[in-house]
Computed example of a mutant assay.
Amino acid sequence: MNQGMTANIDCSVPAKLGKSVQNANCVVMVPPKEFGFNAETAADNEFQHQVSLDANAVKTQAMSEFRSMVAGLRRAGVQVVEFDYPIDVQETPDAVFPNNWFSTTLDGTFYTFPMACSNRQREVRPHALIESLKEAGRQVHATDSLVEYVDQGAFLESTGVMVKDHINKTIYAALSQRCEREALEDYAKRIGYHRVVSFQTALPSGHPIYHTNVMMAIGEHFAVICSEVIPEYERRFVVKSLANTKQVIDISLEQVNQFCGNILQLETVNGDKVIAMSQSAYNAFSPAQRQQLSTHGKLLPFDVSTIENIGGGSVRCMLGEVFLPTRVNSL
């Protein structure tokens, strides 16, 4: 492992070799030790809010929320790789959202992505994370990077902007300054996904959704989407595409503001399905919607209200899925 890098790896239960195509049974989480309001990302993230709390109090609260979430996922049977990093001169206030800078595939490839904001570009630490993943018993056979798109002023923030239907090899993406079409289509070709469904969105302000995963989530047999933010001429096509193979749960813009779209179906190491979400999202789903979701896995709500309110991202943003193959003799 690189000097100064540490990883808290949960090895209490062995990961199964045969995981779901759609759902990861292992996630990367990064402690929010530099967490705070990020003025750079606030330019297009309308879900961020400044608060009057002291900076140290914010970090303490965020860390408490993070620790509770890590513990809850591990209790549920999801393997968590806690990826720590050395504090540098320049802070990375959004490091708690690692899903935006990397992704992994079942064939053992580790990808890195072009981030739109300079202080988020500093989060990209592939070599150290790969070492941590190897210590966690995961195999990395190859690496690939789209970071060179930064030089062209083009960005693609991984599973923040891409919501993947792995079963049908389809990527759904709301276009924005953080999701450039050329980079999106390039990545789809690299991973062998034959279909990209990209679309426009608009909030009441007129600005697009900054990350697709705020208004959309795809599980094995369900999809959550806020169709009202998609222009009418594209809306029907997107919803129909999802409905071909998924139970579609449509959420309102008010529910998006409570992060109902920012949820993630995972698989435990024993093969059970769980759906991670924030307590805010859980409370905002209607009883009927909660019942629908519960047929697809046990609901795991976590109170991450400080991280949500200040960071403008929620539970799904905090989870970097690990689809890498498992070493047979790793644990």
Rank of each mutant, 00 (worst) to 15 (best):
I275N: 09
I130S: 04
M1W: 14
K33V: 15
R195D: 05
I263M: 09
M216K: 07
A24Y: 07
G297V: 09
L133F: 10
I209V: 14
V51W: 02
I218S: 10
K298H: 01
R178Y: 07
N119Q: 11
I225R: 11
D186M: 04
S118V: 15
D250H: 11
Q48L: 03
E234V: 12
E267T: 08
N38I: 12
F97H: 02
F97W: 06
T326V: 15
F47C: 03
V239T: 13
T201M: 04
D84P: 07
G137P: 06
F37A: 01
H166M: 03
V81Q: 04
Q48P: 00
V163G: 00
E220M: 01
H207A: 14
D186L: 04
S330K: 07
L293T: 00
V163L: 03
S20A: 08
F47P: 00
A116V: 10
L146R: 06
G313F: 07
R120V: 05
S241Q: 15
I251Q: 05
E234Y: 06
Y210A: 09
V239N: 11
G320W: 06
K240G: 12
N100Q: 11
S132G: 13
P14R: 15
Q292A: 15
N270F: 13
E157T: 01
K246Q: 02
Y282S: 09
E234I: 00
Q79C: 00
S286M: 08
N270P: 01
G18E: 15
K189S: 12
F110W: 04
P14Y: 01
P98F: 05
S278E: 06
G313T: 11
N25D: 13
A173G: 04
A136H: 08
S12M: 10
S314A: 14
Y172W: 02
A116W: 03
G137V: 06
V315Q: 03
Q50E: 14
Q61I: 13
A136I: 09
I191R: 03
N99Y: 00
I310W: 06
S103F: 03
P126S: 08
T295R: 13
V274Y: 08
T245F: 13
V78S: 00
A15C: 10
A173L: 08
V80Y: 06
D250Q: 14
L156E: 00
